[in-house]
């Protein structure tokens, strides 16, 4: 059964028409898929089917351990939203519920190659010249 409702699917297809550049979703799961990994993979397969500009690459956390390490992925399920480069955007856990909106927004932002932030915010962020790793904890969904 589809995880994305038909009504939502149509709306999402419309939203994704705004995507200009290719978006690559990389997901890490494992051979013996945990429930959350399976749900995440199925959800992402449905998301990738919404737009020709969005592709999905499913990786095995153990078999592709070197790739995971290179991308800084240390737990699964992991979802990465990439453009022609890695913007450092990661989701750990199932991006469902409210987080699904965030996932879609991130895909749209990467697709437009623009973070969609206010000029003033961008100015503040531009002043940072050290590595910053943010981990935003969100509620169970």
């Amino acid at each position: 059964m589809a995880l994305i409702k038909e009504k939502d699917r149509e709306k999402l297809i419309g939203l994704m028409k705004a995507i200009e550049e290719d978006v690559k979703i990389v997901m890490f799961t494992q051979e013996n898929e945990c429930q959350q990994c399976q749900t995440t993979r199925e959800l992402l397969e449905e998301v990738a089917a919404l737009s020709e500009k969005v592709s999905l690459e499913v990786r095995d956390f153990e078999a592709d351990a070197e790739v995971a390490k290179k991308l800084g992925v240390d737990k699964i399920p992991a979802t990465l939203i990439l453009g022609e480069k890695d913007y450092g955007i990661r989701f750990y856990g199932v991006p469902a519920g409210y987080e699904f909106n965030v996932l879609i927004q991130d895909i749209l932002d990467v697709g437009k190659r623009s973070p969609g932030l206010d000029k003033k915010t961008l100015k503040v962020l531009a002043s940072i010249d050290k590595p910053v790793h943010l981990q935003v904890f969100i509620s169970p969904t």
């Binding site: 989701f91 199932v94 991006p95 987080e99 010249d129 169970p140």
Partner: peptide
């Protein structure tokens, strides 16, 4: 995306207690 030195993870607390 605003700055290459920044990376951001969303972490679902229920899955990574």
């Amino acid at each position: 995306m605003a700055n290459d030195t920044i990376s951001a993870d969303m972490v679902s607390g229920s899955e990574f207690p």
